[in-house]
């Protein structure tokens, strides 16, 4: 299930999973996988979270890859929770990643959590990438660009959902990683980047709603 739209001449599809699909080039773009997050938290003396988020994230990514068979997969930064997490990545997760990357171009764009190239991982590392006049980078900058970083979310029908934010200059992707929180789209930081436009909420079916309206959410018996 996806929602198709035009962004600076690119025909794109926002997938209910939170991934972005560019059918013309057969590119699959995902942001903020945060692989190795539980290992990093444990390493830093934090709680010992269920160490399965890598598998959970790659299971979902694998389902998209199986459905779409992309030529290229782009991680829009923060693919890993930190550089040490790359070395410590669970063997099962690393194998799975290698299998998914088999036979396609895999690009790791650097993020604030993973600024350097992930050694020993499939694919190549870049700071940013261009699709026509549109830049692909981790954090929104000079538009037009497609980015991640903020983990945007919306409130809809009484619940919180991860969401794409689509504005005039910026397309911001939701976080794809399993253990990631969200920043509600009316936060000042996000409202400054996308003052007006659409939010596409993830879910079994993507749901489109307007952004930057004074409209109040409908209230009532839920």
């Amino acid at each position: 299930m996806s929602y198709g739209f035009d962004f600076h001449g690119l025909q794109l599809q926002a997938r209910g999973s939170g991934a972005l699909w560019w059918p013309d080039g057969r590119w699959l773009i995902v942001a903020d996988l945060h692989l190795g997050k539980s290992e990093r938290m444990a390493r830093r003396g934090g709680p010992l979270l269920p160490p399965y988020e890598g598998l959970a994230t790659l299971d979902r990514l694998g389902a998209e890859i199986a459905a779409l068979d992309p030529v290229a997969v782009v991680s829009l930064g923060d693919g890993f929770d930190d550089m040490a997490a790359v070395q410590a990545l669970d063997a099962q997760v690393a194998l799975r990643l290698a299998a998914l990357a088999q036979g396609r171009d895999w690009v790791w764009i650097g993020g604030n959590h993973d600024p350097a190239a992930p050694l020993g991982m499939p694919g190549r590392a870049l700071d940013s990438l261009s699709l026509g006049q549109v830049a692909l980078r981790h954090q929104a900058g000079q538009g037009p660009d497609i980015s991640g970083h903020y983990h945007p979310a919306v409130r809809l029908a009484g619940e919180r959902r991860r969401a794409f934010l689509l504005g005039a200059d910026h397309l911001i992707l939701p976080a794809f990683g399993a253990y990631t929180g969200g920043l509600i789209c009316d936060d000042p930081v996000l409202a400054a980047l996308v003052p007006r436009g659409l939010a596409i909420a993830c879910g079994t079916r993507p749901v489109v709603m307007p952004l930057g309206l004074a409209a109040r959410p409908r209230r009532g018996w839920r």
């Binding site: 809809l156 029908a157 909420a201 879910g203 749901v207 489109v208 309206l213």
Partner: peptide, 15 residues
């Protein structure tokens, strides 16, 4: 899901 769609559609019409 249906309710979310109804709510989002209402906002879109309002916009």
């Amino acid at each position: 899901e249906r309710l979310a769609q109804i709510e989002a559609d209402a906002l879109m019409r309002e916009a």
